[in-house]
Amino acid sequence: MSAVFISGIVVFVLAAFVGLEVISKVPPTLHTPLMSGANAISGITIVGAVAAAGIGEGTVAAVLGFLAVTTATINVVGGFMVTDRMLEMFKKKPSKPNG
């Protein structure tokens, strides 16, 4: 295996443990926002998508890249926005009941 690949595995394993550590104690109330926020982060694949889409028009790879950018952007933009929308509701002050 190449050194780059091995260091990739190292990064993956360490990041997974960081994730387990950081998320293990989330109250049930925040489960949905946590999931949709995490979901938006999984849209990081947009980085690969942008690079793929930019390699030149008219190729099959560019078409795939365009689709990748589109789907990843839906994931990222929609995911972060809807998470914010939910968390905004959680933030409303409980002491002011409005009818």
Binding site: G19, L34, A38, N39
Partner: peptide, 9 residues
């Protein structure tokens, strides 16, 4: 890193 975090979550 991002993918591993989400996978763990």
């Amino acid at each position: 890193i991002g993918g591993a975090l989400v996978g763990a979550a």
